[in-house]
Write a protein that binds this DNA or RNA. Sequence first.
DNA 1: TATGAATGAGGTTTCATTCAT
DNA 2: GATGAATGAAACCTCATTCAT
Lengths: 194, 194, 194, 194
Amino acid sequence: MNNNKPKFKQIIDAAVKVIAQNGYHASQVSKIAKQAGVADGTIYLYFKNKEDILISLFQDKMGQFIEKIEEEILKHQGADEKLKALIGMHFKQLAEDHDLAIVTQLELRQSNKELRIKINEVLKRYLIVMDQIIKDGVDEGIFRSDLNPRLVRQMVFGTLDEIVTNWVMKDQKYELINQVDEIHTLIINGLKKV
Amino acid sequence: MNNNKPKFKQIIDAAVKVIAQNGYHASQVSKIAKQAGVADGTIYLYFKNKEDILISLFQDKMGQFIEKIEEEILKHQGADEKLKALIGMHFKQLAEDHDLAIVTQLELRQSNKELRIKINEVLKRYLIVMDQIIKDGVDEGIFRSDLNPRLVRQMVFGTLDEIVTNWVMKDQKYELINQVDEIHTLIINGLKKV
Amino acid sequence: MNNNKPKFKQIIDAAVKVIAQNGYHASQVSKIAKQAGVADGTIYLYFKNKEDILISLFQDKMGQFIEKIEEEILKHQGADEKLKALIGMHFKQLAEDHDLAIVTQLELRQSNKELRIKINEVLKRYLIVMDQIIKDGVDEGIFRSDLNPRLVRQMVFGTLDEIVTNWVMKDQKYELINQVDEIHTLIINGLKKV
Amino acid sequence: MNNNKPKFKQIIDAAVKVIAQNGYHASQVSKIAKQAGVADGTIYLYFKNKEDILISLFQDKMGQFIEKIEEEILKHQGADEKLKALIGMHFKQLAEDHDLAIVTQLELRQSNKELRIKINEVLKRYLIVMDQIIKDGVDEGIFRSDLNPRLVRQMVFGTLDEIVTNWVMKDQKYELINQVDEIHTLIINGLKKV
DNA sequence: TATGAATGAGGTTTCATTCAT
DNA sequence: GATGAATGAAACCTCATTCAT
């Protein structure tokens, strides 16, 4: 029990742990409360209802996730390097927090459509980051100027997401981070032989 | 389970309709039974349990889905054309059956991890199709020979899946099929300016 | 357990017994189910929710209650005799079913405003019976012609109800039925010395 | 918030307002505390528990209610006039304080049997007032000497109570006070034509 | 006196599944 | 094979009350 941590964070962290260990549907509020070291009722002083825990969890964790990616990108020059940094940080963060990876890639997807719509809103910020990289690349003259930003975005996110999900489902038996260069190359150059 | 029986199909089609209309969590067995025009108990003469309906649904519909893609690919020559055919049929089939698109892209994902593992097994056949195209492309000398088939597969599937999911969530307001060429180009050529 | 009785009646009778014994707020659905000899879920095949049990209980029991009063009145001639018959049957029925008396006089009044509004609707039929007696009395020339039917009704019902409630709260230690004549005289003649 | 008023009264008045506005079951201690402008815990410095608030509320308000009736009766001569004064003041006070009328006629009745027994004790003083009027009337020779005081009391109280409750439930759409004479006549003379 | 964050017991309802007919 | 009435486990959330400050 970390009583220094404010209860809000304490409960969110407990939720991540409980959901990762027990799965979404077996994660009762009472289990989360126990893990957080608070009474069941205390949960409801900080969250409107159970769904609100999940939304807050996603907002909190994904907020940090995207923020770190944004910070990392600033350190790099050129759309090409920035894209590689994005992929690297995307993988690095999920590889470093297995519980979070399980929760975001597998468990939280079992939530209902309404929750998933809210989750998508959190992800919009990530899409903006991607859009900027694409725009930069076009401006730099290294990306084709006729790219459809939405499609590129969906390709990049879809690719990374599918790769991480497979990695999680295969119990994270290989190193995600090792694949950054290959994926970067795939996205930049496609399948074509030059 | 007797797959020849018309009731089997009848129940699966009812399930697709009910889930598409009501969402995964509001699709009780009794609702599916009613839509299928049978008694609740009858369901259990054809399916082991509720999960079995969903697995069977996925096997049945995705089986046909992949089959049609396989057939279409046979009509085309060269990995490049085959890939375009794959993308086209992937989109075409989901665009033609909105209920199925909703069920596979949104609703069925709310199922638990175990069910999704089984779903992944059904998809293996799709992955084999993709692998063959990749291998063909390499053999033809049009794809790079150092491609990692798993990663390519995940890129292609992740991309298509993300695009379709977004299309479904945006209430299918634009034409999926119009985007085939762009996506094909993206996958083949990447983002890079030539 | 009376398996001949249809479940609907069975559950209502169980509810009366459980509420009379345990009080309104300690009468959980599970307790009623147990007393009725059915599973908790079975309750919901016959009633929409817990409140619906109570409404149905009141409709069923009060329906019979009023019906018996109506029947008894038919056997008597003249508004004066009819009124006495009404008072007599009102008291007789509640005196004969102590559980029901406790439930209708004490426990059911703890229900919320909405339920009480529905209860009042059931009682409307009783009010019609009273109105008819009043009208008869006026027509016969034995009651004053300037009586306000609503007020008379409220006086009669308020009086009987208050008397029965006191009797129930005093654990029914005296005979309700013995007081019929006195009350009848009070209502007909008032307090005044002739 | 009136900080001059001692907290005890302040809390009781808050309770009346909150219960009248929200209904008995939606009147949580925290809501009453907020309305009273004190902390939740402060309530428990002045009241043993929630039930104690309600009992105190009833004692306080009904104490005043009965007191005013007693005072008014003193101004009148003869049992007949005194009874009319009692009815008048009973109606007048409730008509003048709608919140109190809602609370005493509708909301407080939803309390449990134990609370209502204590409420009845408060009302005993009212019954004594009625008993005295009845006795006076008999002594004056204007009421029948064979009246059963308990029954008369229950008739009078039951009648007034039923009339006020109906008036409150019908959203107080008509003037209660206008009916004093009719009711007085009903109680004194009964239904009979002279 | 006053505060208000924390507590934790308790109950209605849903729905997948069974089994007597 | 087909029925559908019956089962019963399981969990979210509220709110009166406490107590350290």
